[in-house]
């Protein structure tokens, strides 16, 4: 009978506290019906007992399977209940859903990631995947640069991942809206880190963060000469099914859950999209 809305069971193997409000939950499926695989940029519908479901991006790379990560900000009822859960407890997973980033098109490109807050979660999957592929000559990207903005030093998340990326040679530039005595990196909006020398003819830009950040980063990249087919973002919407039927994630004739959440700027320019301020 209705199997469409029945999740597979996942066990929380590990919880990594990223900051005061964001934690990464490392999960493993235990009763999957078919082998679980996904691609960077896809999301899952997460079930938390008595709270229902929410759409959450996968923040780890496929090579880490059978373990996979959901990085979750404590922002509402379900996410708050998730933050009360402990390692060993069970949640439900449906998916993966949505279109992934076009990883094959990124070979030999200069990758520029621009993220704000929890927006680094879906991009983290791509960065980890690029690093995993770096030993594969044909598929490898040429360079990776990350520009990451947070509101304050205490809100900087994914610090463990960022340290590891730095060690592996990724140019990570962090900024906060308002600094304090402990902060020695940049202060200001993430758009201020977008300098001309970061852009080459080969640059592919991947953006995720608050809508207003997406809008200004896209505007700045376009001003610096990036083509619309080289700029990608992933959109967040309220979703109930993940499969293109419930209607909640409508976007000017498209559905973010099946036609997205990853879109190129070229696609978005033909639509009426709040993130672009149209």
């Amino acid at each position: 009978m209705n199997t469409n809305f029945i999740p597979a069971t996942a066990v929380i193997r590990e919880i990594i506290r990223e900051n005061d409000t964001i934690s990464t939950f490392r999960l493993e499926l235990i009763n999957k019906r078919v082998p679980f695989s996904f691609r960077s940029g896809q999301f899952c519908m997460l079930s938390v007992p008595h709270c229902g479901e929410a759409a959450i991006s996968i923040s780890s790379a496929p090579n880490a399977l059978p373990l996979f990560d959901l990085s979750i900000r404590n922002a509402g009822e379900l996410t708050n209940a998730m933050h009360q859960m402990k390692a060993g407890e069970q949640v439900g997973i449906r998916g993966p859903f949505g279109t992934p980033f076009p990883m094959a098109d990124f070979a030999n490109s200069d990758m520029l990631f621009v993220a704000g807050g929890i927006g680094l979660a879906p991009l983290k999957s791509v960065i980890d995947h690029c690093l995993f592929q770096s030993g594969l000559e044909a598929d490898a990207v040429a360079n990776i640069t990350l520009l990451y903005g947070s509101r304050s030093p205490s809100e900087v998340a994914f610090t463990t991942a960022i340290s590891s990326w730095k060690e592996q040679g990724i140019d990570c530039r962090l900024t906060v809206d308002a600094g304090d005595d402990s902060w020695h990196a940049n202060v200001g909006l993430v758009t201020e880190l977008l300098q001309k020398e970061l852009i080459t003819k080969n640059t592919k830009s991947l953006i995720c963060g608050p809508p207003v950040m997406i809008r200004f980063v896209i505007a700045r990249l376009t001003e610096m000469g990036c083509a619309s087919h080289d700029i990608f973002t992933t959109l967040e919407r309220h979703m109930k099914c993940g499969m293109g039927t419930c209607g909640h994630c409508h976007l000017d004739g498209k559905l973010v859950c099946v036609d997205g959440p990853v879109f190129s700027l070229e696609q978005l320019q033909t639509m009426d999209v709040m993130e672009l301020g149209t």
């Binding site: 008595h50 709270c51 229902g52 419930c246 409508h250």
Partner: peptide, 25 residues
């Protein structure tokens, strides 16, 4: 009009139902 919502309703601490109900854009 087929848009819907899906919510979980607890019956007690250890049981519940997943309910689909009509919604409107």
């Amino acid at each position: 009009c087929t848009c819907f919502s899906v919510d979980d309703m607890a019956i007690d601490d250890s049981h519940g139902t997943r309910i689909r109900s009509w919604d409107a854009c």
